[in-house]
C-alpha cells in the first residue's frame, strides 16, 4: 500500500495504481480524453496533467500514466496546472473544434477562444480507438501510421481490414469524430452554451447541431 497526498489530503492506494486513480478515488476532478477504464493508459491527450514534487523540484506529469509513489505531493489544480491545461485545451480546440467532448471541456475551463491556426481534423490521435480495437475487441485492425505531422490512425494500406468485424467500438470511444456544435457561425465553434442550463435555442437557430439538449448558446452574453 502506498500513501500519498493529493491537494493536501492523504490517500492510500494499492501498489501499481496511477495518480489518476488516486485522484478520482478522492473525488477531485481531472479532465481526461484518452483515458478509459479497461484500456491501458497512454498519456496522449495530456489533459490529466498534474503537478508533483515540492519546492523547486516541481514538475508536471500526466496523472493517467504516472504510478503512485510513497509520500508524493500532488496538486491537481495549481496555477501552473491550470495554465498548462488551458493551453492543452486550446491546442485540442485548434485541432478538432467540432468535437463535442472537447467543447464541453473547454466550456468547463472557461476557454472561449484559441490562439492557434485553426484546423478541422477529425482526429486528435488520442489512440482510444486503437487501444479499444486491440485490447477489448482483440482485433488489431487499426493502428498508428507514419510519424510527426503525418501521423495518422487507420488500417494498413488504407484498405479494408480483414481483421475488422465492424464492431463499431472505435466509433463508440472516439471523442473527436462526433458532429460539431456549430453555434450560429460555423467558424467560431466554441460556444460553451452546453455548460449552461436554460431553455433551448433550437427555435432561434436552424443550424445548431449540438446533441446537448438544451443548448443555450444564444443566452450567453455577447462579448
Amino acid at each position: 500500500m502506498i500513501t500519498l497526498k493529493i491537494n493536501g489530503l492523504p490517500v492510500t492506494v494499492d501498489k501499481g495504481a496511477t495518480l489518476l486513480e488516486a485522484i478520482r478515488f478522492l473525488g477531485f476532478h481531472v479532465p481526461t480524453l484518452c483515458h478509459m477504464e479497461g484500456l491501458s493508459p497512454m498519456g496522449a491527450c495530456r489533459l490529466c496533467v498534474v503537478e508533483i514534487g515540492n519546492g523547486n523540484n516541481n514538475k508536471l506529469v500526466s496523472s493517467c500514466t504516472y504510478p503512485a509513489q510513497e509520500g508524493l505531493n500532488v496538486r491537481t489544480s495549481s496555477t501552473r496546472v491550470m495554465n498548462a491545461r488551458k493551453m492543452i485545451i486550446e491546442l485540442l480546440l485548434a485541432t478538432a473544434p467540432q468535437s463535442k467532448t472537447i467543447q464541453d471541456i473547454a466550456a468547463k475551463y472557461d476557454v472561449r477562444r484559441q490562439r492557434f491556426r485553426q484546423r478541422y481534423e477529425s482526429c486528435i490521435l488520442c489512440g482510444l480507438c486503437v487501444r479499444m480495437c486491440e485490447e477489448q475487441m482483440m482485433a488489431k485492425a487499426i493502428g498508428f501510421r507514419g510519424r510527426g505531422d503525418r501521423r495518422s490512425i487507420g488500417t494498413p494500406f488504407d484498405s479494408k481490414s480483414e481483421k475488422c468485424r465492424l464492431c463499431g467500438g472505435c466509433l463508440y470511444v472516439c471523442p473527436a469524430c462526433e458532429l460539431r456544435c456549430t453555434y450560429t457561425e460555423p467558424d467560431k465553434a466554441v460556444c460553451g452554451g452546453c455548460a449552461n442550463l436554460s431553455p433551448p435555442c433550437l427555435i432561434n437557430y436552424d443550424d445548431v447541431m449540438c446533441y446537448m439538449d438544451p443548448c443555450v448558446a444564444c443566452e450567453l452574453p455577447k462579448e
Binding site: K140, R145, R147, P156, F157, K163
Partner: peptide
C-alpha cells in the same frame, strides 16, 4: 511482403505497417 511478414512472424499487420511507415 508485409502481409507475408505478418503471417510468418505472428505479429499483426498493423504493427508492421506502423514500423514500415514510421
Amino acid at each position: 511482403s508485409l502481409r507475408v511478414v505478418a503471417e510468418e512472424t505472428g505479429q499483426s499487420l498493423v504493427d508492421i505497417y506502423g514500423v514500415a511507415t514510421f
